[in-house]
């Protein structure tokens, strides 16, 4: 399966989705002008990955900041991950960022996937 690798920018996150090496990560800042368009290839990639996933998957979300339009799309990403067997979310937040910790907790209440919380 092809690797999806997007460099981060000042308003879009870095994306690395690599089935072979077991790397699944979205990190950085997310405030694109058109969040639906930005996340479409991510959701498409996950949909095809779901047809033949690895036995277990650790999907890392390490976001420094996201806007409200991105938060809707992050929920869509999580919903796409929800039906994949062996899925686990690793939610990173900066140790003094309570808002990002709470955001992760809220997402974990909205989908049926185990969340692990880590600080950086």
């Amino acid at each position: 399966m092809e690797i999806l690798n997007l460099e981060g920018s000042e308003d879009t996150p870095k994306i690395m989705l690599d089935k072979k090496n077991g790397i699944f990560e979205i990190s950085g800042r997310s405030l694109p002008e058109d969040s639906a368009e930005f996340y479409r290839p991510v959701i498409d990639w996950i949909t095809s990955y779901g047809k033949d996933p690895n036995p277990s998957t650790e999907f890392t979300l390490k976001l420094e900041y996201f806007n409200t339009a991105s938060s809707k799309l992050i929920l869509d990403v999580l919903s796409a991950l929800e039906d994949i067997k062996g899925m686990k979310i690793v939610w990173y937040f900066h140790e003094d960022d309570e808002d990002m910790e709470e955001a992760g907790q809220e997402f974990s209440e909205l989908v049926e996937i185990p969340f692990e919380f880590k600080t950086y």
Binding site: E33, S35, A36, T68, A69, S71, K72, L73, L75, L110
Partner: peptide, 15 residues
């Protein structure tokens, strides 16, 4: 966030 769709203008109604 559970019920919204992104609008044509790109908003989620959450701002």
């Amino acid at each position: 966030i559970k019920n919204t769709q992104i609008s044509e203008k790109g908003g989620a109604g959450l701002g």
